[in-house]
Design a protein around this nucleic acid. Structure first.
Ligand SMILES: [Zn+2]
Length: 306
DNA sequence: AGGGGCACCTGTATGC
DNA sequence: TGCATACAGGTGCCCC
């Protein structure tokens, strides 16, 4: 599943492939990807003839900046705090937002005869490169942002701190954690507090911090909060360097179809019944809010008394 | 206000 | 073999 490290891997590959290229052709095969786009995809088609200025990311959203000016580049293209602070109101720039949902893939396409199934959208570039958006479960979506100017894009205004993009991302993200009774895992999954964490990385963060997923925020010590912050960085930085996690189902692969390698470092996710790599006890799998949590009942205790 | 529940979707795996 | 069911889960919306 594409979460922050997978989307970041796609972002950096796509930036290398597409920056400076002209959008020659936009082809739409499946209108449902535009269900949240006010123009139903027409605005994207009208970008033919414009140029890719940058490929950015906030949480699990990919952000393509497209401009009629071939030489325009946003000031902080490779820096941090891009979305909240850069003022591009003096440029003719449009942001295209892509969310991969559960099974969305950005793919570097080859021969047309070998196009994959569920290819909903293709973007042809002047270099000859064809970029595809394929998505079997169709939870992914694409939309052209309505508002550019100072401050965040309207459509992702609700997102909280991005722990990698924001200089103090994890500090910002955890400032309200111990004031809420919500289970810590629900707080990690809340994109309005910290964005980019999904079910898989939530479990990997929690087991490294030795915190039980159902611990209410109000029961967390300062030590727990510090451990959680450190785990967020540890997990995301290592997962990005290993190009994300690809499981058996291969719902995530990179733009060239290659798997990531962070799944080999998993301590909890998809390891139910196998030994905890810290203490040897069996990892358990437990229903949690329409998903599953994977954790070690010995390393991650719920209360002070058990 | 904020938290819980659910719809959306389809390929794969499992059970009878 | 075939049909039914479970499962994977991010997001947004409804409801309390
Ligand atoms: Zn353990």
């Amino acid at each position: 599943m594409p979460e922050l490290p997978e989307v970041e891997t796609v972002r950096s590959d796509l930036a290398r492939l597409a920056c400076g290229d002209e959008v020659v052709e936009v082809k739409v095969n499946e209108n449902r990807v535009f269900r949240d786009d006010p123009s139903g995809g027409r605005d994207l088609v009208q970008m033919e003839g414009q140029f890719v200025s940058a490929v950015m990311r906030w949480g699990k959203y990919l952000i393509l900046l497209v401009s009629p000016d071939q030489n325009y580049r946003p000031v902080q293209q490779f820096g941090r705090s891009i979305i909240p602070s850069v003022d591009w109101s003096d440029h003719a720039v449009t942001a295209v937002l892509l969310h991969l949902g559960m099974s969305g893939q950005i793919l570097l396409l080859g021969d047309r005869a070998e196009d994959p199934r569920h290819l909903h959208l293709t973007i042809g570039l002047s270099s000859g490169t064809r970029i595809g958006f394929a998505d079997t479960r169709t939870f992914g979506r694409v939309l052209v942002s309505s508002g550019m100017g100072a401050g965040p894009l309207n459509e992702i205004r609700h997102l909280g701190a991005d722990p990698i993009q924001d200089p103090c991302g994890a500090d910002l993200a955890f400032d309200r954690t111990s004031g809420s009774v919500s289970p810590i895992k629900a707080q990690l999954l809340d994109q309005g507090r910290i964005c980019g964490v999904g079910n898989m990385y939530a479990d990997e963060i929690l087991i490294r911090a030795k915190v039980h997923p159902r611990t209410p925020g109000t029961n967390l010590s300062n030590r727990d909060i510090s451990a959680l912050k450190r785990s967020v960085y540890r997990v995301f930085e290592e997962a990005i360097s290993l190009r994300g996690s690809s499981l058996k189902d291969m719902t995530y692969k990179d733009v060239s179809g290659q798997p990531g390698m962070f799944q080999e470092r998993h301590l909890a996710y998809a390891r139910a019944g196998r030994p905890c790599l810290i203490c040897g006890d069996s990892i358990v799998k437990e229903r949690f809010q329409n998903r599953y949590s994977h954790f070690c009942p010995n390393c991650q205790k719920l209360g002070p008394c058990d």
